[in-house]
């Protein structure tokens, strides 16, 4: 009998422990995607890669914890904002959109029919249609989607055409040290690739997690 009791107590303990662990993750699964910029962001503690743990460090839980406030009012605001954005996307009334893309290590703020020049060696040739996939931000008159750090490449598509590949003017690199009989002069030209942005689009609704991702391209 005593063993049975102790066993049930153990079960109880385990169950309560599990529940305590599971509960916050389940309850706080909802998050606020459309928060205003100047409000404090929701902090998600991320387990760090650290092998040696000093005794004074708190143990890192093996499950992801999401510490978020639960607020009906904010929840409603977020849902409304998301719905409004989705509505605008669906009815194609977003107006002109802009995006921040990273190409060849540099970031450009672009909108439709813009021209950007990329410096340095870059393989695409003239007439090539490109899809710029590193989109850090996309915005329109009424809303802004910010990637963390980049937006889902299925969600947004930024298309561009290569219209020119040329060399820059001749640049001079002159090095000189006074009173040291040292002077070097080099001339160089760097590659320039001119891009025309054709379109910036949002495909599908925001704040929707698809069942399967990454089917848009095959390696």
């Amino acid at each position: 009998m005593a063993t049975l009791l102790s066993f049930s107590r153990f079960l109880n303990y385990a169950a309560s422990n599990c529940l305590r662990r599971v509960a916050p993750a389940v309850i706080c699964k909802q998050y606020y995607p459309a928060l205003r910029l100047w409000e404090t962001p929701v902090r998600t503690p991320i387990a760090e890669y650290r092998t040696a743990k000093p005794p004074w460090m708190r143990p890192i839980p093996n499950y992801q914890t999401e510490i978020q406030e639960w607020n009906e009012e904010r929840e409603k605001i977020c849902t409304d904002v998301t719905n409004e954005i989705n509505n605008q996307i669906a009815t194609d009334s977003t107006g002109r959109m802009f995006a921040v893309v990273q190409v060849c290590g540099k970031q450009f703020k672009i909108t439709e029919h813009d021209i950007i020049i990329i410096e340095g060696f870059w393989p695409p040739n003239i007439g090539d249609q490109l899809k710029l996939e590193k989109v850090l931000l996309i915005g329109s008159k009424d809303f802004t989607l910010i990637g963390r750090p980049i937006l889902n490449r299925e969600l947004v598509s930024v298309d561009a055409t290569v219209i020119e590949k040329t060399l820059s003017h001749t640049k001079t690199r002159f090095r000189f040290q006074a009173r040291k009989q040292y002077r070097r002069i080099n001339f160089y030209r760097i590659q320039h690739t001119m891009l025309r942005i054709n379109s910036i689009n949002i495909n599908g609704n925001i704040n929707e997690k698809k069942e399967v991702e990454g089917l848009d391209r095959v390696y």
Binding site: R96, I110, H113, D114, I115, I117, L167, H169, T170, H192
Partner: peptide, 14 residues
Amino acid sequence: GPSLRWRKLWHTEF
């Protein structure tokens, strides 16, 4: 190419 120096690497109408 060699007779023109770009002052900016970006052009937008908007």
